[in-house]
Write a protein that binds this DNA or RNA. Structure first.
Lengths: 192, 192
DNA sequence: GTCTATAGACCGATAGAC
DNA sequence: GTCTATCGGTCTATAGAC
């Protein structure tokens, strides 16, 4: 299934997904048009529909791309020796992107927020899986620390991250992420 | 300035703002059309533009309404005797609305998230003031507790609330708000 | 002041040539 | 497979009757 036609032509599909991802992060799903995506991907407008039957399907591909990237990132975090180090490395990911987050919000959080407004009509893509993977992974780390309330702690951690991202974006202050990350680090160390 | 024509005709303007507020909460700004707002407010479509020159102005009126309501709510919270009781009463406001928040997100948070995508073109309304009022108020409470890091604590508190609201909405689990609120309550009591 | 009708612009999706 | 041209629908905003 991974190669129906020898080698990929030029990665048009990949370029479309990448263009859609960045535009959706900057403008949101609703404000992003197929024409804009095609232009950023350097693909003729009408050709988009050869790769994606609907705009929904394109957004779905963006979500799937995020899921794959998140899983890969979490595997990389597993290399750290202790659960504490892994959890702090997770927090650090948002600090590293603080400028981008302050400018356009957390790519995952703001996308989930927008997709949460879907009530069946119009666009209908489920973004919950993106955050669920992170919560599940964090829960596993807290459980390695011997915490019975691992699930709640995981939700607390992701809440703290996502909330800080929202405030950093609303106030356009990347330092909010740095400062809240320091607090979360201390909180992680205080557990065990 | 509060009464140019004796008594309000029938509160059409108020009904429009109320309709816009609920529709924006349910669907977001972009997906909400003037026609829908007019219908929910029981006002003829074209008449909306007599009260609001543009859609932007209508959204701005919704934001102003939120700001007024927030300020009134915070004044009510000031009745509690201790800063801790006031802060916990603030958290409780989201718990009381947990079903609505799980269904459509925090009205303020999701609106700020969407307005944060505005980059000058298209709609341009600033929603930061809504959250700033809450952060400022919480900062004052923490300062009453003698905390030097009152600003950071206030941002931590609002981050925790907004993050929990985002996860509760994404996973459609109102209990996330209840459980995170209990954690925030304990955290507030542990300070001082 | 109130309402109808519609202009004008834009977008998602399709048809069909190559 | 690739691309152009365009349809049909929807939205904001306005013009103008009452």
């Amino acid at each position: 299934m991974a190669n129906s036609t020898a080698v990929k032509p030029a990665g048009k599909r990949e370029r479309l997904v990448a263009g859609a991802r960045s535009l959706i992060h900057e403008q949101g799903v609703q404000r992003t048009t197929i024409a804009e995506v095609a232009e950023r991907a350097d693909v003729p407008v009408g050709n988009v529909y050869y790769y994606f039957k609907t705009k929904d399907e394109l957004v779905g591909a963006v979500v799937d791309g995020y899921i794959a990237d998140i899983q890969a990132a979490l595997v990389r975090l597993d290399r750290h020796r202790t659960p504490q180090a892994r959890l702090k490395a997770l927090v650090q990911m948002w600090v590293d992107q603080r400028e981008d987050v302050a400018q356009h919000g957390c790519p995952l959080g703001s996308l989930c927020s927008e997709l949460g407004k879907n009530d069946g009509s119009g666009l209908d893509v489920d973004g919950a899986e993106m955050l669920r993977i992170e919560v599940d992974w964090a829960e596993g780390q807290f459980r390695s620390l011997g915490r019975r309330d691992a699930r709640d702690l995981a939700i607390s951690l992701l809440s703290g991250i996502q909330g800080a991202a929202l405030l950093a974006n609303t106030f356009r202050e990347p330092e909010i992420l740095s400062r809240q990350a320091r607090r979360l680090d201390r909180w992680i160390d205080s557990l065990a």
